[in-house]
Simulated assay, not measured.
Amino acid sequence: MPFVRTLLGDIDPEEMGVTYSHEHIVCRPPYWQEKGEDDLLLDDPVKSLEDVKRFVQAGGKTIVDATCHDYGRDVPAVAEIARQAGIHVIGTAGLNKGFLWSARRPGSDETFAEWIERLTLEELTRFVADEVEVGMEGTPYRAGQVKFGTGYNSISPLEEKVLRAVARAHHETGAPVHSHTEAGTMALEQIELLKEEGVDLRHVSFGHMDRNPDTYYHLKIAETGAYLCFDGIGKVKYYPESVRIACILELVRHGHEQQILVSGDTARKSYYRSYGNGLGLGYILEKWVPRFIEEAEKAGFDGKRLVHLFLVENPRRCFTFKKGA
């Protein structure tokens, strides 16, 4: 039977409902702690719960929490938020990106980089697979996707090692794969490495596509069958919503409407309503969706149908495991 793995157990994909495909709920990234960057520490579960409740009130049902090992997860706190808010949360195994790895792993004298370098590829694969099959960081809460990431216009040797370990853990567990692309770069190079590992790109989602609003680039990624995650909604400091929506509609025009995911990557206090009076987790459903529908219909599309695809049907397919695990 097909299933989606959430922190509180495996569910039928039909139970997911409206889904944000890339968020952060509670996290204390060691790198940003060492730098004293308080805005990047979502360190109050009570405040995070307040925003999650706004998401629920707006019609949301599932959140993919993309916080992995090097980004300071608090798995029990997020699981409790899922219980209290009555939502599904999909957790994330693996590692994010190289520049975070100069920080020390919690409870260890090693940096993340030293730890990754010390482990064999087989040991690193086992670590990622165990997060899916056994539990994350000593808890019983299992991850529902595996993640790797690369830097801006570059892939370091350690990032490639993590990518290959994540690809192999995907084969072992059947978990869907998520890619962090720094500023939307290097997805095509990542794809070549994933192909070397025999990964079917239809099981992969590429994050931060709206950070690189290049339609040619987006179409090349989409031609592989992969999902493209437009997860910077509300962040007009990068690009206005008109640019983001135009990129999405161009993919739709080329027949890739079933490969688009949307979210906010709400990873700062200043983005949350409850922490810093930001737009908050309700924003996409309350404000962006009506605007998208209006612009899509002006362009000749059925906006409501597209929103249902991006928030319900596409995540349902993307986050379903590809074999029994």
Results as ranks from 00 to 15, higher is better:
Met1Ser: 06
Phe3Cys: 15
Val4Asn: 06
Arg5Trp: 08
Arg5Ser: 11
Leu8Lys: 08
Met16Ile: 09
Gly17Met: 06
Gly17Phe: 00
Ser21Glu: 09
His22Tyr: 08
His24Glu: 15
Ile25Gln: 01
Pro29Asn: 15
Tyr31Ser: 07
Gly36Gln: 05
Gly36Met: 10
Glu37Gly: 00
Asp38Gln: 13
Val46Trp: 11
Lys47Pro: 01
Ser48Asp: 05
Glu50Gln: 15
Asp51Phe: 07
Gln57Tyr: 13
Gly59Phe: 01
Thr62Gln: 00
Thr62Asp: 03
Ile63Ala: 03
Arg73Val: 02
Ile81Asn: 01
Arg83Trp: 04
Gln84Trp: 03
Ala85Cys: 00
Ile87Asn: 00
His88Val: 12
Gly91Pro: 03
Thr92Ala: 15
Phe99Gln: 09
Leu100Asp: 02
Leu100Gly: 05
Ser102Glu: 12
Arg104Pro: 05
Ser108Arg: 08
Thr111His: 01
Thr111Tyr: 01
Ala113Arg: 11
Glu114His: 01
Leu119Glu: 11
Glu123Ala: 11
Thr125Ala: 10
Val128Thr: 09
Ala129Asn: 06
Glu131Asn: 10
Glu131His: 00
Val134Ile: 12
Gly135Pro: 07
Gly135Gln: 00
Met136Asn: 00
Glu137Met: 08
Tyr141Arg: 01
Tyr141Cys: 05
Gly144Tyr: 10
Gln145Lys: 15
Val146Pro: 05
Lys147Val: 12
Lys147Ala: 06
Gly149Met: 04
Tyr152Gln: 04
Asn153Tyr: 10
Pro157Tyr: 07
Glu159Pro: 07
Glu159Asp: 08
Lys161Gly: 11
Arg168Asp: 10
Arg168Glu: 13
Arg168Asn: 12
Ala175Thr: 05
Ala175Tyr: 10
Ser179Met: 15
His180Asn: 11
Glu182Leu: 09
Ala183Met: 07
Thr185Asn: 00
Met186Lys: 14
Leu188His: 06
Glu192Trp: 13
Leu193Trp: 07
Lys195Thr: 10
Phe206Cys: 10
Phe206Asp: 06
Asp214Thr: 08
His218Ser: 06
Lys220Val: 06
Lys220Gly: 02
Thr224Pro: 13
Ala226Thr: 11
Leu228His: 09
Cys229Arg: 00
Asp231Arg: 01
Ile233Ser: 13
Lys235Glu: 14
Lys235Phe: 04
Tyr238Met: 11
Glu241Ser: 04
Ile245Cys: 03
Ile245Thr: 13
Val252Tyr: 03
Arg253Ala: 15
His254Asn: 13
Gly255Thr: 10
Val262Asn: 11
Ala267Leu: 08
Tyr272His: 06
Tyr272Pro: 04
Leu285Trp: 07
Lys287His: 14
Lys287Cys: 01
Ile293Pro: 04
Ile293Met: 03
Glu294His: 08
Glu295Ala: 05
Glu295Gly: 04
Ala296Gly: 03
Ala296Asp: 11
Asp302Pro: 07
Leu306Ser: 12
Glu313Arg: 09
Thr320Asp: 13
Phe321Pro: 02
Lys322Asn: 04
Lys323Met: 03
